[in-house]
Simulated assay, not measured.
Amino acid sequence: MMIAAGDTVQVTIWDAEENSIFGAAGVTPLQPEIVSADGSIFVPYIGSLRVAGMAPTTARERIEEELIRTVPSAQVQLTVEPGQTNTANLAAGVSAPGLYPLPNRNFKILDLFSQAGGPRPDLNSPQVRLVRGSRTYGIPFERLLSDPGANIAVRGGDRIFVEDDKRQFIALGATGAQSIFDFPEIEFSALEALAFIGGVNAGSANPEGILILREYAQSAVKDGIAGPPQERVVFTIDLTSADGLFSAGNFMLEGDDLIYGTESALGPALTLFGLTNNLASVVSGN
């Protein structure tokens, strides 16, 4: 750990001389000093001494080196209590939340989680959020484990918390179950979702007419190639063809998608919902 502004430094001076200027006891604990904005502390018989950027051992040696000019037999003991600029706040969603000191400038997020016991086991597909200054960054914990580049260094003052994946999708119509479902995984395909909800109703569903209804933000609407042609789009899945099954396996659901199993011919349903895109074309990019 490097000493930084805001840390509290406790210096204790040992002097074996009988008539020590620090008193007859031989051990003199000084008042704790908060490292100032310019990185310095005050030490008697030395004055203002810059310690920011030093390891505690280096700062102790520096104080002792300066002090022995006045007190030849002096020995120094130094402890540091990290301040905000040398700690990170693991605020919630872990087994042991709290303030954690940063031992060095290369202390990574996963290092912090290893000290705190990792995300709570009751969280569904845990999502990591890092608040730094006025900005918030997010990444799924699973991706943090698998992508070394995402395991960035923590900075003093960072606030980190873990929360549930709040995404949900809805299943209605002639599907195996009609309800609102949480996303069980980070990436969840339409085919996996159909298996998750028990497929479709074998007696009434039209396997050629499984619809995925999605509503985009107005800002995302493009020309139909670089982005959706309009806010409300309906994608179709044909479970009777190999191409349809492969396409469903490659099509990733988004939060608030609606899976609807039709019970009649596909044409009237498409007229009802307006725009329809062929799912295989969307996945292939054509």
Rank of each mutant, 00 (worst) to 15 (best):
N206Q: 06
G39K: 00
K108W: 08
I13Y: 03
G224P: 04
A153V: 09
S134R: 15
P140M: 08
Q230D: 07
V27I: 14
I160W: 05
R155E: 13
V162C: 03
R60P: 07
T70Y: 15
V43M: 06
Y45K: 14
L191H: 06
R105V: 00
A25Y: 11
N206M: 05
V200L: 10
V200R: 08
R60W: 07
L30R: 08
P29Y: 11
A91N: 10
L191C: 07
I186R: 12
G157H: 04
L110T: 14
V233Y: 01
K222C: 04
P207V: 05
G118E: 08
F107Q: 07
S241Y: 02
I139K: 07
D223H: 09
E17W: 00
D223G: 10
V162A: 06
G227K: 10
A4G: 14
F246Q: 08
A248P: 01
P140T: 01
E61H: 12
E17S: 15
E187Y: 13
T70E: 11
F42V: 15
G285K: 09
L90M: 15
L144I: 08
Q230H: 09
V27F: 00
I21S: 14
F181H: 10
L145I: 12
Q115P: 05
D147I: 10
G117T: 04
A226T: 15
I210C: 09
A226F: 13
T240G: 03
R143D: 14
I210Y: 03
P32Q: 10
A24E: 14
G6P: 03
L194E: 02
A205R: 00
I225R: 15
T57Q: 15
A174R: 10
S247L: 02
E231I: 09
V27C: 01
G255S: 15
L78H: 00
I68Y: 06
K108Y: 05
F141T: 01
A116N: 10
V282P: 09
G261T: 03
G249H: 09
Q31L: 11
E17K: 12
D257Y: 00
L272A: 13
Q75W: 11
I152Y: 01
G26D: 10
S36R: 11
S241D: 05
G93M: 05
A16L: 11
L172A: 11
E263K: 09
P97H: 05
D122T: 12
Y137G: 07
A25N: 15
G224I: 06
P207Q: 06
S125G: 01
F141G: 02
A37Q: 14
E81W: 04
V71P: 02
F273C: 03
G26W: 07
G285M: 07
A91W: 03
F113M: 12
